[in-house]
Amino acid sequence: MSVSRLKNQLLARLTTAFPRLAEHFVAGYQAQQSRGKIPFVRPVKPLRSARLALVTTAGIHHTAQPPFDMNDKEGDPSYRVLDSNTLFDDFTVTHDYYDHSDAEKDPNIIFPLVPLQQLVAAGVLGSLADTHYSFMGHIDGSHIKTLVEKTASEVASKLKADGVDLVLLTPA
């Protein structure tokens, strides 16, 4: 593993253990300011009859899938398609910019599949999609354009084609 990856992983552990350090890094990093009207639609169906999918930026994926590119300093705007029926049997997290040791113990803290399945069983939520999507949330520079214009847009089209009404995005 490269020195730069080790440095990123060490920083991720430190900023999780000492949140004040994280605030220092935030002050030094400028997230891209969104422009224009904020996209917004009200849910058209009550939750009890709606179909929900998860999208995460926590970098979780099936072990058999290619990892996100952690050697590119500007990140990786690609996504992985997740099958909720098998994901928790064999998953990994590729993301050097946060400490995912707790998420590896219980992936529900980044990808709350079990709490949502319980809501379906209780009749609170209509249904849960079988297919969900994962990004790795460190995306910067020229990759922001790829994310906005290509990969995020592709995921939105796939969710629509799958009859998904609601999306819960979990960041990390």
Binding site: T16, A58, A103, N108, I109, A172
Partner: peptide, 9 residues
């Protein structure tokens, strides 16, 4: 803390 959007394991 980072990496815990839904809580603790």
């Amino acid at each position: 803390p980072f990496g815990h959007p839904v809580g603790e394991p």
